[in-house]
Design a protein around this nucleic acid. Structure first.
Length: 660
DNA sequence: TTATGTGGCTTTTTT
DNA sequence: AGCCACATAA
């Protein structure tokens, strides 16, 4: 039995094509992941590739995990051990750890998260204005994603404004180097630069990897593309799979131009189009096609489906955000009752994470199990970040942001004034805060009363540093938590309920470390070095297997659901106001397109007449995108009165009565 | 100098 | 509802 027998002709062509670079233009629901997993199976099972010579690269850890699962299932009789399935960022991290010295980094360098990055920028700019900081961070990020160094950024700056930002970029990068730290963008940019400048590294990696498959290619940026080019070299053995209509990461430096660029850079590029949609009904697909036809076309592509017409797309006008959440949940309940579906068949998708709150409340009120995806990561919670700060500092004593967080949490009598002084000492000596603590200058400039706790803290860290590679990760972490009295600190800080939840998170983290340490035979140092890239969902996914999914549109890409509710489909939200102001309407439209094409059987859109924003209530208009869905989808003539709060609860009561 | 309490202000998307 | 700046107490 051929490993590609289950594919349709273009899918099979894509899976078996090995004569050079391949671009698969795969519309929504056309079997992208299927092609990639089958190709992996084919390469290993029929072409004799070693699993470890194949890399499949995705954008999120979740997608990577799903791909790993599907590939493993498909190749039951084929051994996939060693197969590399990762995100661009973890691939880059892997390379950078291995070849850190070429980048003048110690192997235990730290990875700074966005909060750390914003903190550094805030210091440089001497401001706390979030808007201003975010502008600088995003500017720098875009430069990094274009592989532009601070010097190049400065040279190519066109006005004073850009020159100022370029100088900030320069100081920011110097700061990172001093901390022996990298940010998320560096995880792509530095490996790409290393391969560019070091032939020996190029050779090493090109020999190791014989075929690379990239999912969601439309969302790659220049740095990622360059990394791919350097990894594949002249053989250019890669399969890029993407859909320009689903490019939604332009703000992160991704550009569908990369799709065009491929054609120019690889004249022999073979292109396969997948146009049959196996996911959605004709009605949903028609609306999606109608919507996206308002965007200029890069590659001509016509999606079709033979899954029947299906239900009409529903539009739900509501009074305000609370009413919207209640109405959606109610409609969901009645739909589930009528169709005998599972909770997991439903998804509620929205533009911004903040929109989730009202829906969570409404779902909780009705005891509907739900799972929140995207949003704040487990590792972004303050209590987890506290613990990680200790680990980071133990691993890398140059990591000043980690030092500051750890030394002040829990409070140990060291405040801003002392840290300020220590910072000055460190700056004149050109060392980190940790090392500066032990200097003669510190002894002379910082009073005994404040220096003593500093020294005690640093010695404490040193003692753990000696143990970190020797003792089991779980035990050592528990020891650390006990030593800093973290539980007491947590319960002092918050009321019992909040504290308990925080402490539970810490315990969950500790348990996760212990388990991971044993399973992968990794010590605490090794675990610390990968933590920054892992998200909450990895460990918790199975807890609530049958639950309604709450997700941002961005985080929903690549997923599909029987029944989808797109909520808050209003001007200023989708499309987002700033996106409209800055002329980025097309990407907003693609975001809407991604939402529409998540649905298999039914699609419901909702919007509010008024919405609470900050403290006051503001009037809202339905999104222009609703009209663009085509004649088949009609706006109701006037805001429906059928679904007011009162009648809503009545129907809900009736429904509950029926359910007994 | 450090730790804690209060009032004003705010929300795009993610590795 | 949460975060930050600022003011005040220890």
């Amino acid at each position: 039995m051929s490993l590609t027998a289950a594919l349709n002709p273009p899918q099979r062509e894509a899976a078996k094509y090995l004569d050079g670079p391949l671009l698969v233009l795969a519309g929504a629901g056309s079997g992208k992941t299927r092609v990639i997993t089958h190709k992996i199976a084919y390469l290993i099972g029929e072409c004799g590739y070693k699993p470890s010579s194949i890399a499949a690269i995705t954008f999120t850890n979740k997608a990577a995990r799903e791909m790993q699962d599907r590939a493993a299932k498909l190749t039951k009789d084929v051994n996939t051990k060693g197969l590399i399935v990762t995100t661009f960022h973890s691939m880059g991290l892997r390379m950078l750890r291995e070849d850190a010295k070429f980048a003048e980094l110690k192997p235990a360098f730290s990875i700074l998260d966005s909060a750390d990055a914003m903190g550094i920028i805030s210091e440089i700019l001497k401001t706390t204005d979030k808007q201003e900081i975010r502008r600088a961070v995003s500017r720098i990020s875009l430069w990094k994603n274009e592989l532009k160094s601070p010097a190049v950024a400065l040279a190519s700056a066109e006005d004073d404004n850009a020159r100022v930002y370029a100088k900030i970029y320069d100081r920011y990068d110097a700061t990172l180097r001093a901390y022996q730290a990298v940010d998320f963008d560096d995880l792509i940019r530095l490996p790409a630069e290393l391969l560019d400048t070091h032939a020996e590294l190029r050779e090493k990696w090109q020999n190791r990897l014989r075929h690379i498959l990239i999912d969601e290619y439309q969302d790659t940026n220049i740095a990622q593309y360059r990394l791919l080019q350097k990894l594949t070299g002249v053989r250019a053995a890669f399969t890029a799979v993407g859909d320009d209509d689903q490019a939604i990461y332009g703000w992160r430096g991704a550009s569908a131009d990369n799709l065009k660029q491929l054609r120019e850079d690889y004249p022999h590029l073979h292109v396969v189009k997948l146009e049959q949609n196996y996911r959605s009904t004709v009605r949903i697909l028609k609306a999606a096609n109608s919507l996206i036809s308002n965007n200029p076309k890069l590659f001509e592509k016509r999606l079709w489906s033979d899954l029947g017409h299906g239900d009409a797309i529903q539009i739900m006008p509501t009074k305000d955000d609370e009413h919207e959440a209640e109405s959606v949940v109610m409609r969901l309940l009645s739909h589930k009752f009528q169709h005998r579906t599972e909770w997991r068949d439903y998804a509620i998708l929205y533009r911004g994470n903040y929109q989730a709150r009202v829906f969570e409340q409404a779902l909780r009120n009705e005891k509907v199990p739900y799972q929140l995806s995207g949003g704040q990561s487990f590792f972004d919670r303050s209590e987890i970040k506290d613990v990680i700060a200790y680990l980071r500092l133990i691993a890398n004593s140059d990591d000043d942001p980690a030092f500051i967080r750890a030394v002040t949490t829990p409070k140990r009598g060291i405040g801003t004034a002392t840290l300020e002084k220590l910072g000055q000492v460190a700056a004149t000596l050109h060392v980190g805060l940790f090392e500066a603590t032990f200097s003669a200058a510190a002894a002379s400039q910082i009073g005994e009363r404040h220096l003593a706790p500093l020294l005690e803290f640093c010695n404490f860290i040193n003692r753990f540093e000696e143990r970190i590679t020797r003792e089991p990760a779980g035990e050592l972490l528990n020891d650390l938590l006990k030593s800093i009295n973290y539980e007491i600190y947590i319960f002092d800080q918050d009321d019992t309920r909040a504290a308990q939840s925080k402490w539970n998170n810490v315990m969950e983290f500790a348990a996760w470390i212990a388990k991971k340490g044993e399973a992968d035979e990794k010590n605490l140092l090794q675990l610390t070095q990968t933590i920054a890239l892992i998200t909450l969902l990895e460990g918790r996914e199975e807890e609530e297997p049958d639950a309604v999914r709450l997700s941002t549109l961005h985080a929903a890409k690549g997923l599909e659901f029987g029944h989808v509710f797109l909520v808050g489909i209003e001007e200023n939200i989708l499309p987002h106001r700033e996106a409209v102001d800055e002329g980025r309407l097309e990407e907003e439209r693609r975001l809407m397109y991604v939402g529409v094409t998540r649905a298999k059987k039914s699609l419901t859109l909702s919007y509010c007449a008024r919405r609470k924003r900050a403290r006051e209530s503001v009037a809202c208009d339905p999104s222009r995108f609703i009209e663009e869905l085509g004649d088949d989808v009609r706006m109701p003539d006037k805001p429906s009165t059928a679904e007011t709060k009162a009648s809503g609860s009545d129907r809900l009561a009736a429904l509950k009565a029926m359910l007994g």
